[in-house]
């Protein structure tokens, strides 16, 4: 037979509904945010600023030690956000992001729901896009939870005032809140690099726990390498090296160039990991 179209009566492909991808995305977000484990992680994250705030409130202020910005909290509740993010960045936030990103594809492969998603069909590229957006949404939610709880707890415990920046300048509260939004956005972008790594790892296995552990392992490894002085040449390129770079936003003269180049590095990590994830998922044999 020369061609199958000669014989085939015109096959009428079913029509796609408008907004179908939005529906899939909302379903993905519901799946992530509806899961008790993930909600529990968000609750724990929301407690972090509260705990720090209460601890600072009840203890006598001591200068010098403690995480960045800790000293400023008593003067301005807004600094609770920055302290909480500084505390959360090395461990809590990567852990939470690693769990959800590592689970994203591997979890569905392990349950077997991936094969049903693919035969609905959701094409493999769409699966990756919706999983990426889902993880990104969760990452943003996690950072926002810390940020909003920080503002709330800081405001209640210490009050929100005009902000004295690290450089000594004072800006209005409105300006300070705007900078806070910038800090939150920067942290989301920074964590996106790790989240993309988690997505890639997640396409490699059907074991969600292994994928989660490996993702968190990526962050830990990067932090370790960052702590070895002999590797200082490597440091600027490490995934985690500029994670706390958001402090730059709290100077009078913000070095936008540095912020952009750091964000660029995070996005480059994300691009590499997502390309790897796509290469893997688009050719993967789904046997689970």
């Amino acid at each position: 037979m020369s061609s199958s179209d000669v014989l085939a009566p015109a096959f009428v492909a079913p029509t796609r509904y408008r907004g179908a991808f939005g529906r899939l995305y909302r379903s993905e977000v519901r799946l992530i945010l509806g899961r008790r484990r993930n909600v529990a992680m968000l609750v724990v994250l929301s407690i972090v600023p509260l705990l720090i705030g209460i601890a600072v409130k009840v203890s006598t202020p001591r200068g010098g030690d403690g995480p960045q910005f800790l000293g400023q909290i008593t003067g301005n509740g807004l600094f609770l956000v920055f302290t909480a993010l500084t505390v959360g960045m090395p461990l809590f936030l990567p852990l939470v992001v690693g769990v959800v990103a590592g689970d994203s594809v591997a979890g569905e492969a392990g349950l077997g729901t991936l094969r049903y998603l693919l035969t609905v069909p959701v094409t493999r590229s769409r699966v990756l896009i919706v999983k990426t957006l889902g993880v990104l949404t969760f990452t943003a939610t996690a950072v926002l939870v810390v940020g909003l709880m920080g503002i709330l707890a800081g405001g209640i415990l210490f009050g929100l005032h005009d902000v004295t920046l690290l450089s000594g300048d004072t800006v209005s509260l409105g300006n300070g809140l705007l900078r806070t939004l910038g800090v939150i956005a920067y942290v989301i972008v920074a964590l996106f690099g790790l989240a993309a790594g988690g997505l890639f790892v997640s396409t490699l296995t059907e074991n969600a726990i292994a994928a989660m552990a490996t993702t968190v392992g990526i962050a830990v490894l990067s932090l370790l390498l960052d702590a070895v002085p002999q590797l200082s040449g490597l440091h600027p390129y490490l995934l985690t090296h500029n994670w706390l770079g958001f402090g730059e936003l709290l100077r009078g003269q913000v070095d936008t160039g540095a912020l952009l180049s750091w964000s660029g590095l995070h996005l480059a990590y994300a691009a590499v990991f997502l390309s790897l994830a796509w290469a893997r998922l688009s050719t993967k044999d789904v046997t689970g």
């Binding site: 029509t15 796609r16 509904y17 907004g19 529906r23 899939l24 909302r26 049903y116 998603l117 959701v122």
Partner: peptide
């Protein structure tokens, strides 16, 4: 089932 139906671009919401 809602999850699967939401995944189907050809399913009428």
């Amino acid at each position: 089932l809602r999850r699967l139906d939401a995944s189907d671009a050809t399913a009428d919401p």
